[in-house]
Structure formats: C-alpha cells, structure tokens
Write a protein that binds this DNA or RNA. Structure first.
Length: 855
RNA sequence: GCCGGGAUGGCGGAACUGGCAGACGCAGCGGACUCAAAAUCCGCCGACCUUCGGGUCUUGGGGGUUCGACUCCCCCUCCCGGCACCA
C-alpha cells in the first residue's frame, strides 16, 4: 500500500547536481557580460558601497580571503536584490617587499612577478563567482595609481604636513642596507644573516604629521558606532592620550661646572602626577637622552654604562617583554633643582625610561610609583611619602599606606603650601603655578607618533622630491608627475636604496634653478597605497585628479567595510587620517571613510592558523575542483559565525556539498500531484500540510532577512534554509496526495532559490533558470515575509512544576492565560505531580511556557 | 599587569529581550536499495539509572538573585587577541 519513492540512483546522471557542469556554464556566461556587476554612475536608487579589504597579490588566494569575500559578496548580492545601487569593487595592494624577495630568488622582475600573481588571483576570484565590478579594478603598483600617492605627498608637503627628520632604523652591516622591523629576528639578528646583530642607525626619513589629527582621530572614534568596540579600543590605546604636566628642572650650576653645557640648561620631565613632586628624589633620563651624549663625551666610564643600558633596553623590546626588564641605572654625578621646593636631586640614567615617550625624562617619586619604588629600593634612593590615602575606616580619615601608594584618592602632605589638598585639585593648582612662573605647563602627550613613510626599497612609490645643491629640498612640480619607478634595477646587490644605483633616475634637473639635482631614492611605505584606494574605486580612470569630488561624495562613506582584525590599527588609522586630510584639502566633506566595519575571524585548522610550515593549508583551488565554488563559499559561511574563528574541517565541506545536491533535487523534482486537486480556491484548499509548508517558508524568509539586517550570523541563515529544504523533501507523499497546492510548491521553490542566491550564486542561478525564470536573478526582488503567514496556529506549551519540565499541552495560538493554565492543570502528568500538594504560584509566559510552583 | 573576546555532546556550532539546552551540520550506529561497494534515502544519536512509564544529572569551577539562569550579579580557572616600565 505504501508507494515507494523512486530511488535517486535510478535517476539519469544529468539530472543530478554536478557542480563543475553548473559552475562552468555560468562562469562562461558571467565572463561574457562585463556590465553584470557594474555600479551605475547615475542612479535614482539608494547607493550602497560594500568593500572587502584588497589583497596583497602573493600569488594565490587562501581560505581567509575566500571567507572575507564570501561575506562581502553575500551582502552585495543581498543589497542588489533589495534594489540598491551597489558598488562592489576589488583591487590589488601590489607594492611591497615580497616582490623584491621573489625577484632576488627567482630572478624575475618585481613588476612581472606581481602582475602575473594578480592574473592568477583574479582568475581564482572569478572562478569563485565573486561579483566585482572589474571595470574599477585598482592596481596600486601601476603609475596611474601611484602618481596620486605622489600628488598627495606634494599636498602634504605644501601644507607643512610632510617633513624630513633624523630617525633610527634597523641596519644590517652584512646586507649594508636597512631592514624593516619584520626582517629583524626575535634575537635581534638579520633574517638573512642569522649570526649578525642588527644595528640602529640614524637616517633622514620623511614623515607625515598624523599627530596633527591625534585628538580628532581619538574623539571621532566615539562616533563610529558601526565599528566593533574592540577595534575602537585598540585605536584608543594606540593613540594613547595622556594628560599631564611638563616641568623644567634647572641644572645645578654649582655642581655641574662645565658639564651639560651646550645641550641645554634644563631637563624637562613629563608627569601625570605633578601632585607628587614634593616626593621626587631623583630625575631619571632615558639612555638616549641628548644631554647624556654631552656628559659621556668627557666620561668614558659613563659612556660605556649608558651603552649597556641601551643594549638592555633594545633587547627587551625585541623580545617583547620590556615590562619584565630588570631595572638598571647609573648616576651621572650631576644634580638638578626641583622648581617647587628648590631641592637638589641627583640625575640618573635608567634603562626603564623610554626616549620616544613624553620627554625621555621623568621625575622619580618612589613613594607613589611602582617602577620608581623598585628602582629606589635597588639603588637606595630616598623614598618620601607625600600622599596620604583616604582610610577605609571612617574613624580615621587618613591611613598610613603600604608603599608604593599609587592611588589618586588622597591628600597631600609634606608638600609645602599644597599640603592638605586633594590630588586632583593639587594637579590643577600646581600646573597653573608652574605655568605662571615659567617652568612648566599642563600638557597632553600621545603615544601616537608621526608616520615615517620612507622605505629604502625598490618596489614602492618613489617619493617625489629633489635635492638641489643650491635650492635644497625641492618638490617635483605637479606637472612632472608621475615620477616613474624605473625597471631593470639590480636590487639583489644594492647597498641602501636600490634606486640610488640607477643614475638615470637619480640625476635630475632642479625645477627652480635648472641646475643639477638628485632625486630622493627612498620609496613610500605601502600603507600609503591602502590609505585612500577606496576613493579611487569611485572614479578609477581619472587622469586629472585622484578622483572627482562629486562622484566620491555620492558613494562615501563606505557603507560596509569587511576585513581581518589584524588591520585594526595601522591600515584603519592611516585611512582615517588620510580622509581627514583630504577633507581639509576640500576634496571631500566626510570626516570618516567607513560607516560600518566588520572584522571576520581567522580560518584555522587543527587548532592552529593555516600555514605552510604547519602543513595545514587548505587550497581554495582544490576545494573548488572537488566540491565547487558554491560549496567552498557556503561552507566558509556555515561553519561558524563570521566574526569568530572558523575551524576548517574537510568533512564539513563534504556535508555542504551534499546539502547542495539535496536542494538541487528538491527544487528540480517534477513532483506532480497524482491526485488532481479540487477546483476550490487555493486558500480553502490549504490543509495542515500546506499550512505547515507556508508557515515554514515565511519563517525562513524572516530568519534570513533578519540575519542580513542584524547580526550576520549566516551560519544560522543556512541552517534555516536546510530546515526548509528538509521539510519540503519530506513532503513527497503530501505532494503526491495533492495536499500541497501546485502554486504553493512553485512559490516555495522560487523563494528557496532566492534565499540561496547570496550564498551559492552558481547553483541559485542554475535553479532559477530551471524554474523557468527569464530575468537575471540579481535583479529579482528579495522575498518579503508575511508575519501573519509565519505565525503558528497551535502552540505546544511546556509545563514545568517547580521549574522542572513535566509535560506539554497543545493549545490554539490565541489562547488566554486562563485557558492555558486550565489545560495545564488538567493534564494527567501534571495532576500526578501536584497531587496532595499546595499550589503556591502559577506562571504563564505567553506563548512560551507554564510553571506551577507547589509546596 | 591592563583592556577586549571566549569556554555548551565525540566535533563545528544553535538557543535573538531570563522561559523546552543541544537547532542545523559533521562523525558514529542501525536499516532500505545493491550480487557487492560507492552514491542516495529512512531511523537513532549528551551522560547515568530504568520496572521502558519514566527518573536523575548536565552549558569551564564555586557562590548568589529568581517561580525559572547558557543568558543577570560576585569570586575563581583556563584559552585566544591587543596593549604594556607610556611616567
């Protein structure tokens, strides 16, 4: 009596889902249509700019890329289907060191290596079906892009925001060139000469004055509520704003006869706790402090000790535990005068003082600073209590603290006229006093430093500057841009900047005097390229300006930016800086580039980040070949919520591949009713099965739409789609029996395909066509859900007794509290549990549960 | 040390505002189809106890609030990320 459903194996092969066949077919079609994903230049639709961070063209995509782009692509497709004018571009962050390394290793010119990598990766992206507007492709290593880096540099220079300064860099004596920080091994040696210690050298470098925007970069973080709090916190830490006071300690001439001469007569210290200054018992200098060179010149013993301190400090920094370093110091033999109490305090040099923070000098207050305390104990310096904390015990107002006491809830003692003041009050009054008397002032210090953009490398944007003997530093005139990066440069044997060995490049004419001039041979940090590339996408072929302001204004800010959290600081802070600068230039009006930021998690395998050395790398090409692009993409969305790390499992993608096969089968099955449905109108013909299907359909639309508009938990979107598919595939008998109206069946399949489209575009397009749809799926409208249809008619209400689940009752959805409670109490199992007991409380949470409390 | 994030079956994960813990998937087990296998389909699938009705326990650990806690509060452990003698 039971009809056996036809086994799948008897189905002709070509009816089964074959990802290679489907994907090749659509890949070919999409290739032929250059306009497919083009953003409109003029559109009455609302704009939506969705962007994924552009990759470095290393030669092959990895799974992290696939995940990143799968998220962005799903969003772009969803927005298209919601009738937005979508901008979804892609490009290449294609300057940088690996191209030079490859050039040295394989003897391939960096340009050739880079462009061939781009070709490979672009082919991969296309095969994966990502919907990019390739007519807007930006390649940062090409002159039509980097000339605008140079143009911006000239603007920075014009505004006084690009300047030259001596700065310390890593120098390998064997390579005879400068190394990036990443090229210095953990033990402080060169990556190519593992037994050679890297030195620090002073070099003239170009800087961009990002610190001009420190405050704005910090304050505007508060407005970025579409950014993860984590990233905002990281940027706040990075900027590191700190309010404090600068205080000048005069050198004691009586003691310092001669020493400390030309370098100055005062030491300026920065402190956040000027209220503790009466407890200062020494002044501590960073070992690199300029005053020391002066002293050390006449004191070789001191010079040696200071050098040791420098080495200790640098080693600790390289190992990354500067916080753990054993504190060492040396007394200079000299003294300074505390301007508040005119006391003479010894001047020391210590390895825990950093030259690049504050002024490189501190006043040491052992009683109220942990580091100073530790140092003072070690070298037997005086520890003088000047703050008494408020006592816990209200009987006594002040407590004898355990040293060091670093709290702010106290009162000053032993502090002359300031005795009795509260800390906060004292800080204000003492800062004001210092300012009135010309030996200090309240100030704000930042951890953020100006951005050193000079790189002694070949594969980067040439800095458009000239050095003329007569006119000094002269910018290249705008009309002479771009300064083209020459090819055929021997980078393997270069000493210093490779461009320095190219006479045709170096030798130029001074635009001012017409005499000979030398070109700048350093190139720009590649973070310059990525600081503004997303503006170029809006007007990528402009040869008169980096972009047209009006066009950029239409698209900006970026509605959604998606990328790895590893760029939370550098790239995202430089980009914000660049945007503020462009606004001040009048190019744009927005002060921030990115409205909403999403940072996706890493792709890991076997509990570790994928890496060649661990041998746990999963190749996207292999996944596409074995399971298809749709499966690879769908799995990267299904395996974990996008913001969390994703643990790659090969068996998992296999499961997704099976799901795609099931949805293919369910949608394409020609399941006609064997019983002819009656002629009644549809609404009256819908029995319980039809209603169940309809309800599930609308619930699924709601769930997936909510995920797009909210948390982006696409893993649950996809499970919702699986549930719907499971329900429909389990209804074959109802369908055969004519219990599902044919129009419902068609509608369900249609909607399922629409819901699948953002995640698995190849299969969705194929099924869409198979359903007889003529219009491009991208232009189809995202389905709307009907809350009334999604609503359950009957509810199964769990019944708890004293919080423990004991039974369930089924009630109509609109039941009153009274009705539900009566039903629950009448239930047999419930009766058994409450028999002989007293009902204390009856709780009904509408639509959710009943809890009966008994004694 | 400071600031984030996290810990749920054998595994990846779900549970949106305090209301049925374990959706969906993987792996596993049983069955159907097959000469057989693969593929596919159907069923079972947290642990322990069970008289097979069910019962007890269970969301890193300990306490608390509540009729009710994965969810809120306090304390603790471990893992991941960032910052770190920042004066």
């Amino acid at each position: 009596m039971q009809e056996e459903t036809e086994p799948a194996s008897s189905r002709p092969n070509d009816e089964r889902y074959d990802p290679q066949r489907v994907e090749t077919k659509w890949f070919t079609r999409w290739q032929a249509d250059a306009q497919l994903y083009a953003a409109d230049r003029d559109s009455t639709k609302k704009k939506y700019y969705v962007l994924e961070m552009l990759p470095y063209p290393s030669g092959a995509l990895h799974m992290g890329h696939v995940r990143n782009y799968a998220i962005g692509d799903a969003l772009a497709r969803y927005m298209w289907m919601n009738d937005y004018n979508v901008l979804h571009p892609m490009g290449w962050d294609s300057f940088g060191l690996p191209a030079e390394n490859a050039a040295i290793q394989n003897n391939t010119p960096p340009r050739q290596w880079t462009l061939s990598n781009i070709a490979k990766m672009k082919a991969q992206m296309k095969r994966l079906g990502f919907a990019y507007d390739w007519s807007r492709e930006v390649t940062t290593c090409l002159p039509d892009y980097y000339r605008w880096n140079q143009w911006f540099f000239l603007k920075f220079y014009e505004k006084g925001l690009a300047y030259r300064k001596k700065s310390r860099v890593n120098w390998c004596p064997k390579c005879a060139t400068v190394l990036a920080n990443e090229q210095v091994l953990a033990n402080g040696c060169c990556w190519r000469h593992e037994d050679t210690l890297v030195e620090q050298r002073e070099l003239e470098q170009w800087f961009l004055r990002i610190t001009k925007y420190s405050d704005e970069l910090l304050c505007d973080l508060d407005k970025l509520d579409g950014w993860p709090e984590k990233v905002r916190t990281m940027q706040r830490n990075w900027i590191g704003r700190s309010e404090g006071t600068l205080i000048d300690f005069k050198l004691d001439y009586a003691e310092n006869h001669g020493g400390f001469g030309p370098a100055g007569s005062t030491i300026t210290v920065f402190t956040t706790r000027v209220d503790t200054i009466f407890g200062a018992t020494s002044v501590q200098l960073a070992p690199q402090h300029p005053l020391i060179a002066d002293l050390a010149a006449s004191n070789p013993d001191l010079a040696t000790k200071v050098d040791e301190l420098i080495v200790e400090q640098r080693k600790a920094k390289e190992v990354g535990d500067i916080g753990e370093i054993e504190k060492h110091g040396v007394f200079t033999g000299r003294y300074a005068i505390n301007p508040f109490n005119k006391e003479k305090v010894p001047i020391w040099v210590a390895n825990y003082i950093l030259m690049d923070y504050g002024t490189g000098a501190i006043m040491s207050v052992p009683a109220h600073d942990e580091r100073d305390y530790e140092f003072a104990k070690k070298y037997k310096l005086e520890i003088r209590l000047v703050i008494l904390p408020l006592a816990d015990d209200p009987e006594e107002t002040m407590a004898e603290p355990q040293l060091p006491y670093v709290g702010h809830d106290g009162m000053l003692i032993n502090s002359g006229p300031y005795g009795g003041l509260a800390c906060a009050d004292a800080i204000k009054k003492m800062s004001a006093f210092a300012e009135q008397n010309g030996f200090g002032k309240a100030t704000v210090t930042y951890r953020l430093k100006d951005w050193g953009i000079s790189r002694q490398r070949y594969w980067g944007t040439p800095i458009p500057m000239l050095y003329c003997e007569k006119d000094g530093i002269v910018p290249v005139p705008e009309k002479d841009l771009p300064v083209i990066l020459p090819e055929a440069v021997d980078i393997a044997h270069a000493t210093g900047s490779p461009l320095g060995s190219v006479p045709e490049f170096v030798n130029a004419t001074c635009p001012k005097c017409g005499g000979p001039a030398r070109r700048e041979t350093d190139t720009m940090d590649t973070f310059v390229d990525s600081s503004w590339y997303f503006y170029r996408y809006t007007d990528p072929h402009n040869d008169r300006a980096p972009f047209d302001s009006r066009i950029a204004q239409y698209w900006f800010p970026i509605d959604q930016y998606i990328g790895g959290v590893e760029h939370a600081i550098l790239h995202l802070i430089y980009s914000r800086f660049w945007t503020k600068f462009m606004r001040d230039l009048g190019l744009i009006t927005n002060g921030e580039p990115v409205e909403r930021l999403f940072t996706q998690g890493m792709v890991i395998k076997d509990g570790a980040k994928m890496s060649k050395s661990l041998g746990n790398v999963v190749s996207p090409d292999e996944m596409v070949a074995r399971y298809g692009a749709d499966a690879a993409r769908l799995y990267s969305l299904f395996a974990a919520p996008p913001d969390r790390d994703l643990d790659w499992q090969d068996s998992g993608i296999e499961g997704i591949r099976k799901f795609l096969g099931r949805i293919y089968r369910v949608v394409t099955e020609q399941n006609e009713a064997s019983v002819v449905p009656s002629e009644l109108p549809v609404d009256n013909r819908r029995g319980p099965a039809a209603r169940t299907l309809q309800r599930k359909l609308h619930q699924t639309i709601k769930r997936i739409s909510d995920d797009f508009n909210g948390r982006w938990h696409f893993n649950t979107s996809i499970s919702a789609l699986m549930e719907l598919n499971n329900l429909l595939s389990g209804m074959s008998q109802d369908i055969a029996a004519g219990n599902i109206p044919p129009e419902d069946l068609t509608e369900t399949k249609r909607v399922m395909v629409l819901l699948l489209a953002p995640f698995a575009p190849y299969l969705a397009h194929e099924l869409w066509e198979m359903l007889g749809e003529k219009e491009n799926l991208l232009k189809a409208s995202w389905p709307k859900y009907d809350a009334a249809l999604a609503k359950e008619e009957e509810l199964e209400i769990p019944v708890q007794i004293n919080g423990k689940l004991r039974s369930r009752v089924t009630v109509p959805a609109e039941s009153t509290q009274e009705f539900v409670l009566d039903r629950a109490l009448a239930d047999e199992k419930v009766q058994a549990f409450i028999a002989g007991k007293q009902i204390v409380k009856k709780i009904y949470v509408p639509g959710k549960l009943v809890n009966i409390v008994v004694k």
